[in-house]
Computed example of a mutant assay.
Amino acid sequence: MTSAPKTARFMDGTALAREITERTAARAKALTERTGKAPCLATVLVGEDPASVTYVKMKRNRCAKAGIESRHVELPADITTEELVATLTGLSEDPDVHGILLQHPVGEHIDERAAFEAIAPEKDVDGVTMASFAAMGFGLPGFASCTPGGIMRLLDAYDVDPTGKRAVVVGRSAILGKPVGLLLLGRNATVTYCHSRTTDLSEVVREADILVAAVGRPEFIRGEDIKEGAVVIDAGYNPGNVGDVHFASAAERASLITPVPGGVGPMTIAVLLEQTVDAAERLTA
């Protein structure tokens, strides 16, 4: 039996995201020169949640660097579902907009699913609509949820083939846990979903060849629960710049691990930009 490395290799999401963004910028430039119109991402922000404001600003800055136009729509926190749906419908019908990002969460009084479904599937570059979810599930052309899509790109970059591997996903959100499990299943992994009500969670986690932590609890998964040689993808981000995995102890048992920050986060934005240019190319073909 091969012994596990003493220290895992870091999966450098920052460097890979930079490569993807550079290629995306070149495609955006070529499209702009061909059509006279830059790819355009509309960002919609409801309320003034500080974290959401920061995330949207970061995405808009990355758009500018990649040659992607950014149209920002700020809406009051007390907006109704009907008003938000109308805004998103208008953007979906606007030929100058190629991609739409609704920053979430949007407030408990809003029907978030209804809002997502107001985004035209061909402009759903964040992969949040039911049409995108179905495409991920059936392996059809469409837009992946950005964080799961970024995770799959990281696995590919580090030559991690999911075929035949036991993949455990801790978390079941509609934009992260569920879709990343579908993408792994589509790549022939055997996937187990875990959540807050999973019995004997540690025992299930110990079976993982590929572990995706997306539960939203700081340092929830400890090193003693990691299978030796496992690939650990920490998709959590919590106050204090810590993920859902206790990094130091997990790194002693894993073969590959994503740091927080600098792992999954940069990949999410890179995939968003890439899919925006994908959408623009299709819509202007």
Rank of each mutant, 00 (worst) to 15 (best):
Q103H: 13
L272S: 00
K123H: 06
R206Q: 14
E203F: 01
P39M: 11
K6Q: 10
I151G: 01
K6Y: 11
R18K: 15
P218Q: 10
A251L: 08
L101G: 02
A66N: 07
A77N: 07
R153T: 13
A77D: 14
A118M: 13
Y237D: 02
G142R: 01
P266G: 09
L182W: 07
L273I: 06
A250D: 02
H195A: 11
P105Q: 03
A167L: 11
I210T: 06
I20Q: 05
F138S: 09
G243N: 09
G137E: 13
E112K: 00
A157R: 08
E274F: 07
S70H: 06
D94H: 02
T89G: 13
T276M: 10
I110Q: 03
D96E: 14
T198N: 04
A235C: 11
L273M: 10
G99D: 06
V169G: 08
R197F: 13
A4P: 03
I79P: 02
L185S: 10
T43I: 14
N61Q: 12
G127F: 05
A28Q: 04
M11G: 02
E203L: 08
I119E: 00
V170L: 15
P179L: 15
N238R: 04
E117Q: 12
L273P: 00
T35V: 15
T89I: 14
I221H: 03
A280Q: 08
P95G: 12
S249I: 15
A254W: 09
G127L: 10
R18S: 15
G137W: 12
R282C: 11
G181W: 08
F10V: 15
A64P: 01
